[in-house]
Design a protein around this nucleic acid. Structure first.
Lengths: 207, 207
DNA sequence: GCACTATACATAACACTGCTATGTATAGTG
DNA sequence: CACTATACATAGCAGTGTTATGTATAGTGC
């Protein structure tokens, strides 16, 4: 019926935008398309405008985060895995601070609102596994504990990437998660070990 | 030697900017001065440009936060006070979400970098008091626990004001702080009581 | 008291932003 | 193969923050 869109162009613009964000170059309509050969109109045909580009970029951020969390391997120790997920979350944030910042900007409107839920769901499932293994009290609400773990991760990631806290502050994740999991019923010493192990698998989370 | 600046103009612009932020009106150079009688140049003489205005606005955000925390009354129960400070922090964030968001934007460059430290120091002093009262273990690092409490507060505040979590999620602050303080050595039941009491003084924190 | 000067402030133009109206070439379809 | 809907380029628009220029005025040395 007519010319069809080239998905490669969309991917190129998205990749270039992410790169410019990483190198702290100002991402504007004209600077984005400069050098790519495509015209400014491409942004409108593929994203419907700059707002659409930012939305797609937020989506991209969640996709990368999801991939990061999926790369964390599952072991017999669910509490360890939970800590490993937390560490992976922080690594993702500090490696792409600008992309991470954008993910939580502008009223949080995404192309696919389920993307954030999926991230949270990974945590929920791991909490359920830990509870099934008898690590947490039987009455534990998985969504509640997962949300609290997320808040801890986001709090640290945000304060570090924003500037007020130095990168070393990410280490607070260990005692904080340990406190959270212990309060949920895990045996203190064992919990400390599990969290420490999961935290050590911090490098393994990088693809 | 020459004409002197009128501090009232500066305060007026700052107040108006904060109001426009609160009412979600776009804050731009021209919309800011529109109707005030002053010209666009005023922004440059008083703030050196829009960047300076944003910096001053961030400063204003920290000032209001500091005032909020100072309004929290000190009781004999330091752990209760610590929870009350956390609640006040959250109230401040949800009552002025846009101002709060700005506080942690743009690389965190403030006019007075000590403003954030002062906020944190309020928490540090309260932790020290709780430790002196025998609530926390003697080896407790006040700055460490204060920072962790801040991370909890900021994590919740940020996720709620950004959208992913509903306002009701602020209630997670109770179990989270309880877990943190219990891990620091406080007796679980007593801690729960203290935190609940501090959290109840949530309305009292409003000036 | 007064000329002098440095400063606050207004006006207008500048380069830039995202966006849209218009025109053109082309890929898919009957 | 003609036709049409669509991708895309070009150019102009209103808006942004910033800066150059001019003017009036508040403070200071005499």
């Amino acid at each position: 019926m007519a010319r069809t869109k080239d998905p490669a162009v969309r991917a190129l613009l998205l990749e270039r935008a992410a790169h410019m964000l990483r190198t702290r170059a100002p991402v504007t309509l004209r600077t984005l398309v400069a050098g790519t050969g495509v015209s400014t109109m491409a942004v409108y045909t593929y994203f419907g405008g700059m707002d659409g580009l930012w939305r797609a970029l937020r989506q991209e951020g969640f996709s990368r985060l999801t991939a990061r969390l999926a790369a964390v391997d599952t072991t017999a120790d669910a509490v360890r895995d939970l800590a490993a997920l937390g560490a992976a979350y922080l690594v993702n944030a500090v490696e792409g601070p600008d992309l991470y910042r954008i993910m939580f900007d502008a009223g949080f409107d995404l192309e696919d609102p389920g993307a954030a839920d999926e991230t949270l769901h990974t945590l929920v499932r791991t909490v359920e596994r830990a509870t099934a293994d008898g690590r947490f009290a039987t009455g534990t609400d998985p969504l509640e504990l997962a949300t609290q773990s997320w808040a801890v991760g986001h709090g640290l990631a945000s304060l570090v990437t924003s500037g007020p806290l130095p990168p070393a502050a990410l280490g607070h994740g260990v005692p904080m998660l340990t406190a959270l999991f212990t309060a949920a019923g895990d045996e203190p010493d064992r919990c400390r070990d599990s969290v420490a192990q999961g935290w050590a698998g911090l490098r393994a989370a990088a693809p």
